[in-house]
Simulated assay, not measured.
Amino acid sequence: MDIPLKPLNHRNGSEGPFDPAHEPISTVCRIKREVERNVKPWMVIVTILVLIVAVIILSIVVCSALQEDVDDKFDSSLFEIPLRFNGSFQLPNMVFTEELLILSSNESQTLTAELQEKVADLYTASPALGRYFSKAKIYSLRNGSIIAYYQLTFLMPEEQQDQLRNFTLSREMVYNVFRQFLYDHESEDSAPTYIDPLSLNMFGRLW
């Protein structure tokens, strides 16, 4: 009795003809099942969040590197035209001594140097006025708690001096920057060199 023989699939030992076209499909399905079994939903979410954060950080870095502020480009060597403001302010926390009348005395020099640095720092840090600021000078100390008389010097480029005098370096602008600084630091009203904002005066411009 003849028994019909069925061809074996030599790849897996199963009966039936071997179809090469089915092999890649079964491999893909097996890999897909493995991935679905091992990858948790939270892992996918975390990966997506990490990619989003990385893209945002990269965008910020690239934009910061490429962005150029034209206003930040200036040649300070062209700033030669001086503009000066005189004024006064009061130090209510300090007691006046006769030695302060002598500007060459140690007490006077120490106080004037500290005040000059304080005023210079506030104008140097100003986004609007910092590039034009040159120096601050305390030229006199008087009684009345202590009243300090100061002079501010700014330097302007010649071709823009008229516009600067009328707007950026107007008396109102220079005065308001000083006054706002004093109000912002009112919490330091117990410091020896605290300046009373209400005592701030600024006189006319000097060329």
Score class of each variant (00 low, 15 high):
101 L>G: 14
101 L>Y: 14
102 I>Q: 09
102 I>N: 14
103 L>W: 00
104 S>H: 05
105 S>P: 05
105 S>R: 04
105 S>K: 04
105 S>W: 01
105 S>L: 06
105 S>T: 10
106 N>P: 09
106 N>V: 10
108 S>V: 09
109 Q>Y: 06
109 Q>P: 00
109 Q>H: 03
109 Q>K: 08
110 T>Q: 06
110 T>P: 00
111 L>K: 04
112 T>R: 12
112 T>N: 07
112 T>M: 11
113 A>F: 09
114 E>S: 11
114 E>R: 15
114 E>L: 14
114 E>A: 15
114 E>H: 09
114 E>W: 06
115 L>H: 03
115 L>W: 01
116 Q>K: 08
116 Q>T: 05
116 Q>E: 15
117 E>I: 05
117 E>S: 11
117 E>L: 02
118 K>Q: 11
119 V>M: 09
119 V>G: 00
121 D>I: 06
121 D>W: 10
121 D>S: 14
122 L>N: 00
123 Y>K: 01
124 T>L: 15
125 A>I: 09
125 A>Q: 13
126 S>I: 11
126 S>H: 09
126 S>E: 05
127 P>M: 11
127 P>I: 10
128 A>R: 13
128 A>P: 00
128 A>C: 01
128 A>M: 07
128 A>Y: 05
129 L>R: 02
129 L>I: 11
130 G>S: 11
130 G>E: 05
131 R>Y: 00
131 R>I: 13
131 R>S: 13
132 Y>S: 07
132 Y>K: 04
132 Y>I: 13
132 Y>D: 08
133 F>T: 02
135 K>C: 05
136 A>E: 05
136 A>V: 12
136 A>I: 06
136 A>W: 02
138 I>W: 00
138 I>K: 01
138 I>S: 01
138 I>H: 01
138 I>A: 02
140 S>W: 01
141 L>Q: 03
141 L>S: 02
142 R>M: 14
143 N>W: 10
144 G>Y: 12
144 G>M: 06
144 G>D: 12
145 S>E: 11
145 S>H: 10
145 S>N: 14
147 I>C: 07
147 I>F: 02
148 A>S: 10
148 A>P: 02
148 A>G: 08
148 A>Q: 00
149 Y>G: 04
149 Y>F: 13
150 Y>C: 05
150 Y>R: 05
150 Y>H: 03
151 Q>K: 09
151 Q>C: 14
152 L>E: 00
153 T>A: 08
154 F>S: 08
154 F>C: 13
154 F>Q: 01
155 L>N: 03
155 L>P: 00
157 P>C: 04
158 E>N: 15
158 E>V: 13
158 E>C: 03
159 E>V: 13
159 E>S: 14
159 E>A: 12
159 E>H: 11
160 Q>Y: 06
160 Q>D: 15
160 Q>A: 15
160 Q>P: 02
160 Q>C: 07
160 Q>I: 02
161 Q>W: 01
161 Q>H: 10
162 D>M: 03
